[in-house]
Simulated assay, not measured.
Amino acid sequence: MKVVLFCGGLGTRIREYSESIPKPMVPIGHQPILWHVMQYYSQYGHNDFILCLGYKANVIKDYFLNYRQTANSDCIITDFGTKVEILGNQPPDWRVSLVDTGTWRNIGERLMAVKHLVEDEEIFLANYSDGLSDVPLPEMISKFKASGKLACFVAIHPPISFHLAEFDDQGSVQRIRSSQESEIWINGGFFIFRKQIFDFINEGEELVLEPFNRLIEGGHLMAYRYEGFWRAMDTLRDRQVLEDMVDRGDTPWRQQSPQPSKVA
């Protein structure tokens, strides 16, 4: 299946990096987070990517135009560098479409801008380019196909705890509890769409607002509830958490043999 990745945002909440590079290129370990997202899909055999570029699109284009797998793999060099042999597993054969969808477009507009590249696909995948998870993709796809729905997204509990306050009309607090004790679920990205999704998006609309509500009215939207690992890189703190995980070799989003799922 083709994978659409939204790579055009400004990344204002991680400005320390995004003033010089687009958010998908912020490094986690030795590679940008975009590379980690693509590796996640690639391990399940999805190697045809469509990158919706925008802010500093040239930086992402330059990365792929000058990409060298030998810089990321163990290798043997002979004949003074004229021959290179990759050790271990061979790198995936990615097909990457780099499409400049404009700096100020929202997610819905970016998806519409690449419609011509997925309109022949019965089902395609999509995601933001700044979040990582070990969600079992084959199982999610299987459930989606069986449902007959037109769209699906991963629903997760907020990874950061906050306090929920309940109070009456006079402002008297009745209860305070942790969000981890609640049944709050949020959109975690990792979308699956049938090609009919484009019939529900009008010009200028954000993806998960008006179009998703139209899908809900028709009973066409499903959520895949997941309680395993999920982390979005919204802030420098999020980036540091992911960086520390990579340093420890703890990369759950890269499972050679996907682990049993934790699905509600």
Rank of each mutant, 00 (worst) to 15 (best):
R194I: 09
C152Y: 00
N187V: 03
F167C: 06
F167A: 14
R175Q: 14
F167L: 08
R175A: 12
I197K: 02
N187Q: 11
F153L: 03
F190K: 12
R194G: 15
N187I: 05
K145T: 07
S179L: 11
I186E: 09
P159C: 04
A165N: 06
P158L: 08
I156E: 05
N187M: 08
G148E: 04
K195S: 05
P158W: 07
S161R: 14
K149Q: 07
E181F: 02
I184T: 12
W185T: 07
F190P: 01
E166Q: 13
V173D: 01
F191N: 00
F162M: 03
W185E: 07
A151N: 10
I192H: 02
E166C: 05
I176Q: 12
D168N: 15
H157R: 09
S179P: 15
S147G: 09
G171I: 08
R194V: 11
A151W: 03
E183P: 06
F153T: 07
S179Q: 11
D169Y: 02
L164E: 10
E181V: 01
F190E: 03
G171S: 08
Q196A: 05
A151F: 11
F198A: 07
D168Y: 02
S182P: 03
N187F: 06
S179M: 12
S172K: 14
I192E: 03
K195M: 00
Q170N: 13
S182R: 05
E181N: 09
F162A: 06
C152F: 00
F190A: 04
I160D: 15
S178G: 08
F198E: 08
E183G: 13
K195V: 04
V154C: 11
I160F: 13
F191A: 00
